[in-house]
Design a protein around this nucleic acid. Sequence first.
DNA 1: CGCCAGATCCACT
DNA 2: GTGGATCTGGCGG
Length: 196
Amino acid sequence: MSILERDFYNRPALDVARDLLGCRLVRRMDGQRLAGLILETEAYQGEEDLGCHAAAGKTPRTSVMYGPPGHAYVYFTYGMHWMLNAVTDQQDVPAAVLIRAIQPVEGEGLMALNRSTNAGQRGWTDGPAKLTQALAIDKSLNKVDLCSAADGLWIETGIPVPDSRVERSGRIGLNSVPEPWRSIPWRFNVSGGLND
DNA sequence: CGCCAGATCCACT
DNA sequence: GTGGATCTGGCGG
């Protein structure tokens, strides 16, 4: 295993979003490892990106995005869901990458327990709020350092994903965000999963 | 299957 | 007071 270093995150969100595909998201719970390969991401870059929470400026909620790269930005939405982002780009440039889907590879049993539904394995972690539930991620992990295993959440190198397997599209769920931000192709996903 | 409404609460206006 | 980077179950075709 090799934990991604801070320099990996010290780049624009668009670059980090692309390169996080295939990397291994790891959560330590009760001494056990829960992990999945990242299949889908979205980039949110700067106050000028009207789809980014930082478009509202620096607030208590968005402050972590203005800090150093390589930390977790975990926020609450829709009255019941937690979302996991990785803060990117240099200090004072608010940017982050939303992790939208993973493919479980370690600790599948615990993930199933964390998810209430009895859907197939693919249904455990194929949405941004599903994977946070499967990995027991909530506000207690907001702002933790992803470049260290000390806080129980980090990202390791994984399986390289060639450009031929990467699909791009507009970001999901930005229903009231004006163009071009609503449709700009800042969502990345691995076509067909990683069943190599 | 696809569509739709309900759930539920916090940050920001 | 408003609406959201969502998910789920129920209902109809």
